[in-house]
Each structure stands twice: as C-alpha cells, then as structure tokens.
C-alpha cells in the first residue's frame, strides 16, 4: 500500500490546534504506520509537495495566507479546515468589527509600552493584512472541517485515521462535534 503524505499548515491562528494535534500523543505512531508528515511547523521543509491530506489551522488574514492557501489547494487531494478559526474565523475574526487602521493603532501605536514612539511597522518584506478576516471556505473549496477551539485530540486523530484508511469521517455520528 502506498504511504500517504500529510501536511499541516499554520495560518492566522494561535497554534492551539497544532497543540491539540500533538495531544494525540502515542497515537502518532498509528499515523506514522500509514503516512509521512512531510510539511508542518514541526518539520523542516520549505516547500509544499503534493500531499494527500492538508490540515490547515487558522483563518485567512493576509495576502500571504491567501496565496499560501491557493497554493495548497492545488497540491492537496483533501483539504481539511482544522479548528474554529479555519472554519468560521472565531477569535481572529473579531477584528472584523473595526477598520484595519484602528486595529493596527491599538496594537502598535496606542499600546502601553516603554517606547513612546510606537509606529505601525511597514517594511516591504512584511505581509499585508487584509481588511477583513475570512474563513477558509470563503477562499477555496474545503473538503472537510473539524470545528473546535481547539478541536479535541481524539477528533483530530479520528479524522486522520479515517482518511488514511480511505473512509469519510463523520463527526456528527461519532458525537465529536464541538465548537469553542
């Protein structure tokens, strides 16, 4: 049997979903029997090769995320939105109530700091934040979603093992659905 390839990507999120992924603990060995994790924040690989499953944490907040996500969509057979931010913007989306400038000012200019000369960083190499944060399904077709903030480790493992065994997971049937 062909070994499958898994990628996990961290977009606009807090990395909590990746922490939850690590919480599958020894079950990672079960995953390792069937697949290689070829690209992840914990794997030293710069380019995203073609993969079977891409787990994506976080929402789309900048031009960089947007391009990254479009790239992943082209190279992943199954694209999974991992966690509430990826599924429905969640906490990252709470800045959508305010104009972008106010958000920047709150973080860099008006923030309490020792440095009285706070200014918005504007180096050309930095990414550009989009006006509004959007969840993954508004940008690309998402094949599967795992909501939760973060999703439980058992839910993540369940989904991974179902896909690795060529089955379609159903969070609803297994009562693994959770938000917040």
């Amino acid at each position: 049997m062909n070994r499958k390839k898994i990628a996990t990507v961290w977009l606009g999120g807090c990395s909590g979903c990746h922490m939850s992924l690590l919480d599958i603990d020894e079950l990672i060995l079960e995953v390792a029997k069937l697949a290689d994790i070829v690209k992840s924040p914990i794997v030293d690989c710069k380019e995203l090769p073609d993969v079977d499953i891409a787990l994506i944490e976080g929402s789309v907040t900048s031009d960089e995320h947007m391009n990254e996500l479009l790239h992943i969509r082209k190279h992943a057979k199954v694209l999974v939105a991992l966690g509430d931010c990826a599924v429905m913007t969640n906490v990252t989306g709470m800045r959508n109530y305010f104009p972008l400038k106010e958000v920047f000012d709150a973080a860099y200019v008006d923030a309490v700091s020792n440095d009285s000369e706070g200014s918005v960083p504007g180096h050309p190499a930095l990414l550009h934040l989009n006006d509004k944060v959007v969840p993954l399904p508004e940008v690309v077709d998402v094949d599967f979603v795992i909501p939760g903030c973060p999703p439980g480790a058992d839910a993540i493992f369940y989904v991974l093992s179902e896909f690795l065994n060529d089955r379609i997971p159903d969070l609803n049937e297994t009562k693994k659905l959770r938000y917040g």
Binding site: L48, N67, E68, L70
Partner: peptide, 10 residues
C-alpha cells in the same frame, strides 16, 4: 487561473 506569485512558496 488566479495566479500565485512565484516568490511565495510554502
């Protein structure tokens, strides 16, 4: 056809 700029590779 939305182009991904080549300088951004994941």
């Amino acid at each position: 056809q939305i182009e991904v700029p080549s300088n951004i590779q994941v």
